[in-house]
Design a protein around this nucleic acid. Structure first.
Lengths: 216, 216
DNA sequence: TAGATTGTTAATCGATTAACAATC
DNA sequence: TAGATTGTTAATCGATTAACAATC
């Protein structure tokens, strides 16, 4: 039952490793040592080896890591070898922007439909995807093997729809609404709080200016 | 010169505190103890007190914290009492979605213009904001007191434009491009890597399914 | 074999939690 | 004054870095 050992810190570094390995692959580089990778990525070689060893060790002494093999292994760890079907709930600008983002498909994430409570846009299409009214949501999820719901709608709507979603057994929510959802613990949630991110940027602008001032 | 003591962990919790304090204020609650807040936020009271004390302590023994005062203090720490002017570079769906997001204005972030290399959309408007061609960028930044550039364009474009940006002295970049920018250390960058976030979600779907399987 | 580099253990560092004296 | 709750120090826990034996 234990949330399988791997720490959050390691997991959040995985996509970045994956990106760098993809770049190496594109450059035609076959193998890389933890040291060389550490220089490129600006982290310690020790951390790289520790991280990979959480999953069993993908390297070979005296050789390093085979780029393509490691790339594929990380993909498997991240579950990118499986297909996921998504619905986007909230067909505003952000929802439509995500629907238009083709790159997700390359990684196995397929948007199947958009939903919005605004009846006037029902039936419109975004990149060939229909916008449905909210009352079709439950049926659609069941019939289209949806496993991820993307919430791009305001706070209040997000709270309401999250109940429907858990009721019809969705297992993952990608939450762009500016609110913490309360969900059964077998539902995984990943939050993207854009305004939090902007505030962090603001903090750092502020504090770096203070530092400059101090040094005058 | 030292990057002023406060740890990254504390800073990234600040926006969440700010949000909860805002909610408390809206509910008309005047004061709150670290314990009561810890229950609402699902963190330890100890952490709350430690965090606030990084900035000098805003509470009073036997009383707790005054909600409105604390709210305002956090706003100041985050630099939300200052105005920031932004440009959005890359007027695709995501750029337009951000331009349409009014909530940022409430916090003092004002989008002044969008830029795109696609000449055919030059002159179009998004919520009253003009789309300009890239060659107007430098001049625009200087004339409109821009301090934040938002990068919503592909990798390659982001790398190129980041050079122009540092050349004309921009101090902060909100980077949505899927690439690590190399910048002088006085330029602050906040990355929003949406596909990284989606991969983390995917990882957790994957690992929670494995856990279920183990328990059968 | 010698050199390179991993996997892994041990040491260090930092962040979180617990405890409690200070004080409103 | 007694009770509540902070600010802060000390203890614990976890994550990162260093070191090195194992091994390709």
């Amino acid at each position: 039952m234990e949330a399988n050992g791997i720490s959050q810190a390691v997991i959040s570094r995985l996509p970045r490793y994956y990106r760098y390995l993809g770049d190496l692959k594109d450059e035609g580089i076959e193998r890389i040592s933890s040291h060389d990778l550490s220089v490129r990525m600006n982290v310690t070689a020790s951390q790289i080896r520790q991280d990979f060893n959480q999953f069993g060790g993908f390297g070979q002494q005296g050789y390093g890591y085979n780029v393509e093999y490691l790339y594929d292994e990380i993909a498997k760890i991240l579950g990118l070898n499986k297909k996921h079907n998504l619905v986007i709930i909230g067909a505003g600008h952000l929802g439509q922007a995500l629907a238009n983002y083709m790159n997700f498909e390359r990684r196995g994430f397929f948007t199947k439909g958009l939903f919005d409570k605004d009846a006037s846009i029902e039936g419109q299409e975004v990149r060939g995807l229909k916008i449905y009214s909210m009352d079709k949501l439950e049926e659609f999820i069941k019939e289209n093997d949806i496993d991820i719901a993307v919430l791009t709608l305001p706070k209040q709507g997000a709270l309401e729809v999250s109940k429907t979603l858990t009721a019809c057994g969705i297992k993952a929510i990608w939450n762009f609404a500016h609110v913490d959802l309360e969900l059964p613990k077998d539902v995984v949630v990943e939050n993207v709080h854009l305004s939090d991110s902007l505030m962090k940027l603001s903090y750092r602008i502020n504090s770096s200016q203070e530092n400059e001032a101090e040094n005058e």
